[in-house]
Write a protein that binds this DNA or RNA. Structure first.
Lengths: 252, 252
DNA sequence: TGGGCGATTTGATCTGGGTCAAAATCGGCC
DNA sequence: GGCCGATTTTGACCCAGATCAAATCGCCCA
């Protein structure tokens, strides 16, 4: 919680690296599993990378890329087909971990293919680690692997919730659920103490995430506004919303 | 691969427990991570349980139950809502691991709730381990946790494939994909060397798995038969199927 | 302040799959 | 072998959400 550490104090000896001491996700990403000394080792492997909205980090079908932490911004994990259909299978927020979609430990053999495309949705900042170096550290620091397991289990949980949404919910329920999810994410990000927040996705991306079309998403949002359940300024900024009512609309 | 171990040889001293030596999933479940000695420890915690088709192992909302390996049969992982809508979020086959849907390590605090119902689809046999005992062993034998991570990553992969199916595929594509998945599972189970296999689910469960209605599933299967892509005896037994054509119908 | 362009909203119409209903088939089981 | 309830198939019709088309909005920049 205390982000006031003086970087100059922590650059020498075996202390916590300066980049990490001021890193927004030091205590929420996988790195939270590491002591300052261990973090120092990991940091030596790492490099930063920035992407602008719309830039693509990996294409599905590419050789497996490096691992990475999301430090800032939002990215989407997508699968597309030739005829233009597209499904967002996950959103990546700060502290999320990237690069294990195709599993671990492909050391010897030819690297497997990335199953999904990863594209920046807003200004994105990644902290990247080479695969083999990171896997080696994971073997040395079991807490790291343990944290990854935790994280993977909760992503599985989220994916299955989304299966329920995509398989059985109505358009109205889907949109309500989506807004609740975003509000929840934003609250956990600590971005807003109040009730107002920005939708990180445009109508098209929302549609691709909840399995509808742009038009249907738009109409459903209009409905929610008419019913007084949400209030917006512009297309992206939610000024207020009645969580209780939203939950009722969301099909649990 | 050699299942001819004589149980009488392995009951004494620190050797592999007899139940395990003849266990169908000794080398494919999480247990594959353990040596005979380690397995012996785990075995001391375990008990077996059998369920008949339709019997329920856990209800969603129940307190977190024990962990378990599926030894034999098939179970479904479902979420239902009051109005009767139902979504199958996963199928459990022999060697699958049960009990981590709500995460690990809730030692001290009140046990969390199971998010899904688990129900036997065929005659089911489970090998059950108490939560705390198993978690303790996992801490002592990191290979066990590593295997669980592997397994969880591939379940996440499956769940995301299903998100694509539920979000963007047509009825025809869904049914074709489902049949391919089952055929694949059956091949990996080594249940059939040939091209013929049983569907483990009735039309209703298929519908709840791929987000359609019974009637639509039935119509689509009829279509596939008319096109000569599959051939069936009765409603459940697939006699032959043209995998190439199925793959084409499946929307990749 | 106005002009241009992409994103969003709104409207009109169409359709894939849902719903409701009935017939056919399948498995047990005596 | 024949009867019964459950499952599956088939048919007729309907509707939520898709598609196609046309405003309208919001934002950047001059």
């Amino acid at each position: 919680m205390n982000n006031d550490l003086n970087p100059s104090l922590v650059t020498g000896g075996s202390c916590e690296p300066a980049v990490c001491a001021t890193c927004a996700v030091r205590n929420s990403s996988l790195c939270a599993a590491l002591s300052s000394d261990e973090l120092d080792e990991l940091n030596k492997l790492s490099r930063r990378k920035s992407l602008r909205p719309g830039q693509i980090y990996v294409f599905e079908g590419d050789q497996a890329l490096d691992f990475a932490n999301v430090v800032k911004g939002v990215a989407k994990l997508t699968r597309g087909s030739e005829d233009g259909r597209m499904q967002i299978v996950g959103l990546l927020f700060p502290s999320d971990f990237i690069g294990v979609s195709m599993g671990l430990g492909h050391g010897g053999d030819r690297k497997p293919e990335e199953p999904y495309t990863i594209e920046a949705v807003s200004d994105l900042e990644l902290c990247i680690f080479p695969r083999d170096g990171f896997e080696r550290l994971m073997r040395r620091f079991p807490a790291l692997e343990h944290k990854l397991l935790d994280r993977t289990l909760s992503e599985l949980q989220v994916a299955r919730e989304w299966m329920v949404l995509l398989g059985r919910k109505t358009a109205q329920e889907r949109v309500a659920t989506f807004i609740l999810h975003v509000a929840d994410k934003m609250r956990h990000q600590g971005c807003h103490s109040g009730i107002s927040f920005d939708l990180p996705l445009g109508r098209g991306d929302i549609a691709d995430h909840i399995g509808l079309t742009i038009e249907t998403v738009s109409r459903q949002i209009t409905q929610l506004k008419r019913k007084g359940i949400i209030d917006m300024q512009g297309a992206r900024h939610v000024v207020s919303c009645d969580f209780e009512a939203l939950r009722e609309q969301s099909g649990y």
